[in-house]
Every structure is written in structure tokens, then in C-alpha cells.
Write a protein that binds this DNA or RNA. Structure first.
Lengths: 109, 109
DNA sequence: ATTTAATAGTTACGTTTAGTAACCACTTTA
DNA sequence: TAAAGTGGTTACTAAACGTAACTATTAAAT
């Protein structure tokens, strides 16, 4: 009847990566800091959701937002140490994908 | 304007694990085959969603459904080789969680 | 013999979340 | 001065999720 198993930390980690776009956002930031529009272009997320996700990831301590330059005001998003530490997870997922996912991109209706 | 980056296989893998419950379902099946109600009890998913997810995971070739026994008809869900291969991904996530997620379970309203 | 419980789901419905599109303020470039 | 880029927000629609109730089958309990 009631759930007894599962580590709550693991569950939290799963819910983080299960939130749509989070894995791709983190993945794209693993290459180094990016600007808002760079992320939208590389992963294809909308402004609305990226804005939302980045705020959430900031409060989770995974992404940090920095403002640089005075006149054109450049805003950069980068991974914290905690965020960087997700690298091996995404690397394993990447190697799983190359081994097991065939590249057929939805059979074309 | 248009997206040029990102491996489509990786994107598919991400969308698989980003689908809510999928990671936990796979995680619970890594311990060995389970029955329908065992999964609902260990991870806390509803019947409706588990049924839906299991069908999807079956068509993705990650889970296999087997019927055993004649009179009480036991239905078992287990991971395929492709599903098993996700073990290192979840292991890395688990070790990330133990290192970086603090066990505060939502500050209690 | 009939009720109760367990298994493996399905159906209906309401709420949340995600996606699309338009817009805004500011700055720079043409 | 108009157009384009950046970093978003607002409003609206569509899809996903959660809850609860229900079904069919079998088995155990009363």
C-alpha cells in the first residue's frame, strides 16, 4: 500500500532531470557559458520555458546567471560545480544513445 | 534561427528519460522482473500512467512483458538488454545525488 | 455460497505543464 | 529612422499528468 523504498535524494535527482528541457539545457552549458539566445538556438526551446527553467535551475544551484558589460549588458548562464558534476551522467546517456538508439527520426507521416 | 547542433540519438535518449516516471520505472526494474502492482508500490505511480508508460517502453524496446502461469496468470515486466544498458546512467545519477542533493525534503509548509 | 481482496488494467474528468505566438524595453546596426 | 538582436513577459491553446472510480478475473475468507 505505502511506498517504503527509494532514496529521496535519488528521487529528487530524477525529478530534476525528468523535468522537460533540463537535461538539454545542462548539456548545452557543459560546453561553457552561454547567452540566453544561444541556448534557445542550440536546443530549440521557447523563450518562455527557457526563462522558467533557468530560474528553477538557478534556485537549485545548478546554473548561475552573471551580468557582464555595462552598455550592451551581456547576460551569461553557466553551470555551477554542482551542475558540472552532472557531466558523467550525460556522458553515459550519450554513449547509451550511440549504442542503442537507431537514428530513424520518426517514420515520417 | 534554425537549430544545427545536437545529435538526434542523444535527443531521443533525453526525451525518453525526461518523460515523467520512466527513469524510476527502469530503475525499479534493474533489480529484476516485477509485477505491475510491485512497480506501483515501489515508485508511487498511478495505474493509469504505469500502464501507459509500460506500453511505450515496450514499443521502445526497453521493457518486455511476459505472461506466465495458466490459472492465476502472472504478468511480469522486465528490462531488455537495451533497458539494462541504462544501468550506468542511473548509477552515475545516483552517485551525483548522494554527493550533491541534500536530503531536505521540501521545507514543510 | 457470498463477500472480500488482489492483480492488471481502463475510463472519465479536472488540473498542471508545455508549446505557440505576440509583444515589450533596450541597444545596436544599416 | 527603421530594422534587427537580446532578454525576457503575457495571453492563450494543447498536451501531459493526477485522482478517482470502475471492470474482469482469480483466490481466499466467512
Amino acid at each position: 500500500m505505502n511506498r517504503t523504498e527509494l532514496c529521496p535524494r535519488f528521487e529528487q535527482a530524477v525529478s530534476l532531470l525528468s523535468r522537460r528541457w533540463n537535461a538539454l539545457i545542462i548539456y548545452s552549458l557543459l560546453d561553457g557559458p552561454s547567452r540566453f539566445c544561444e541556448v534557445t538556438e542550440t536546443i530549440g526551446i521557447s523563450n518562455r520555458l527557457l526563462s522558467e527553467r533557468l530560474k528553477e535551475l538557478e534556485t537549485d544551484g545548478i546554473v548561475s546567471r552573471t551580468v557582464s558589460g555595462d552598455s550592451p549588458v551581456r547576460i551569461q548562464y553557466s553551470l555551477t560545480e554542482k551542475g558540472m558534476a552532472l557531466l558523467p551522467v550525460l556522458q553515459e546517456l550519450e554513449s547509451w544513445a550511440t549504442k542503442w538508439v537507431d537514428p530513424a527520426p520518426e517514420p515520417a507521416e
